[in-house]
Simulated assay, not measured.
Amino acid sequence: MIPNTDNTSIISSTDLSNLTYITSIGCGLSVFFLCVALFMHFLMRRARKSEAAQILINLLVALVLLDLTFLTNEYVANTGNIIGCKLMAGFMHYCLLCTFTWFGLEALHLCLQLATISNPTTHYLLKVQIAGWAPPAIVVTVLFFMQKYNRLVIQTDTGKDVAMCWIIDSSVHYVVNIGYYSVIFAFTFTTFVVMLRWIVLLKRTTAGHKKAASGSGKRTGTGTSDILTIMGLCFTLGVTWGFAFFAYGALRLPSYYIFTILNSFQGFFLFIYYYKTSKFIGDSTVSAETSNTTEATQMENPYEKQKNF
């Protein structure tokens, strides 16, 4: 989903057709499931009170906008309207930078969840939302006035051209997109490793308590909830976008396929994670949870460690 910015990028027509087909189906499914997740979120007043859920919803909104602009990008490019193409390229770039930024803010929120902070930060969510949406707008505005957006042509080995609206300066693409994501990836991947270690330790502690309580020597394996948690963290932090770093040499084409498949279906996996980890409890429902249920919930959702910032 981060295209090469060379004006005469050449790729096999078969591979381009396959990648386009996978992307179209995946983005379509992602938009559908992300919209379902957004609809579910706004129906559940209890979920809207969670800071972690609201941050996740901002990421889902950014991904919905990115998928929609990607699906309609080629159509706008083929209209021949240069102004419209520049606007589409700028808006798609804005959605991409917002998505990267929200990956980083998700990681930051997880770090704050695990840290011990005594002084709460006022208007925490407002500050996070400004940080997530405002800086990318400034970058895109500057690039737009620098005339860095236009119609980009991708050529195949059969001579069939495919057009899209994107950044026409490769140096800008590598610095602004690849460079920025490299910083985000370093932070999010480190957070992912830390959270993975935290989940493993929590799993061992929970299994030890259950073993002591039951007096059984049976070992507890990795369950479906643990796998979904790890996958959810991977997609929520944007770790799968790291495959873009391997798009060189002999790994170029395989990385294109892996990158396209994983990130085209990212919305679907995020929906599964959101559905699995969210607490859908009505306002009138009051239930006493057992300690085992509480431990299981904490195991499924590391985001729900409540804290005021």
Rank of each mutant, 00 (worst) to 15 (best):
L143D: 04
N81P: 07
P302V: 15
T205K: 13
F265W: 05
A250V: 15
C234A: 14
S12F: 03
F246I: 02
D169P: 00
L270K: 09
A37H: 03
T222A: 11
S171K: 05
F246N: 06
T220P: 02
V31H: 07
K307Q: 14
I2Y: 09
G159S: 09
L108Y: 13
Q147G: 05
G90S: 12
Q147P: 00
V175G: 08
Q54A: 12
N78P: 02
V286Q: 09
I281C: 08
F144H: 10
I261E: 02
T229H: 13
Y248V: 14
Y181S: 07
Y124E: 06
K276E: 10
S13D: 12
P302L: 15
M1G: 12
T294C: 05
L19H: 03
I22Y: 11
D15L: 12
C98G: 00
S278I: 03
V36W: 01
H123S: 04
N73G: 09
S284W: 04
Y303G: 04
S278K: 05
L201A: 11
G249Q: 07
D6V: 05
T297I: 08
L237A: 09
G90W: 06
S216A: 08
L71E: 07
G232S: 04
I199R: 09
I227W: 12
I22F: 11
L114F: 09
T222W: 11
F145R: 03
C95A: 15
S287V: 15
A207F: 01
I10E: 13
A134D: 00
T293I: 10
K305Y: 13
N73K: 04
T23A: 14
T224K: 13
Q266I: 08
A288I: 14
Y274C: 01
L112M: 10
T79G: 15
S216V: 09
F246M: 08
D226K: 02
T190F: 13
W198T: 10
K210W: 03
Y174N: 14
K127H: 07
K276M: 10
L125H: 05
Y75E: 11
R45P: 01
I117D: 00
S50W: 04
L270D: 05
S287T: 14
G84I: 11
S284L: 05
N78C: 10
Y21L: 15
I167D: 09
M195V: 07
G221V: 06
C35L: 14
N4W: 12
F268Y: 10
N4M: 12
A250Y: 11
L196W: 06
T72N: 10
F189I: 14
F268D: 02
A107W: 06
R151Y: 01
N58G: 12
V239N: 15
D67W: 03
V200I: 12
N292H: 03
W102I: 02
S264P: 12
I130G: 04
C111F: 05
V176W: 06
D161C: 02
E51V: 14
S264D: 05
H123I: 00
P135E: 06
L60P: 00
L97V: 05
L16K: 13
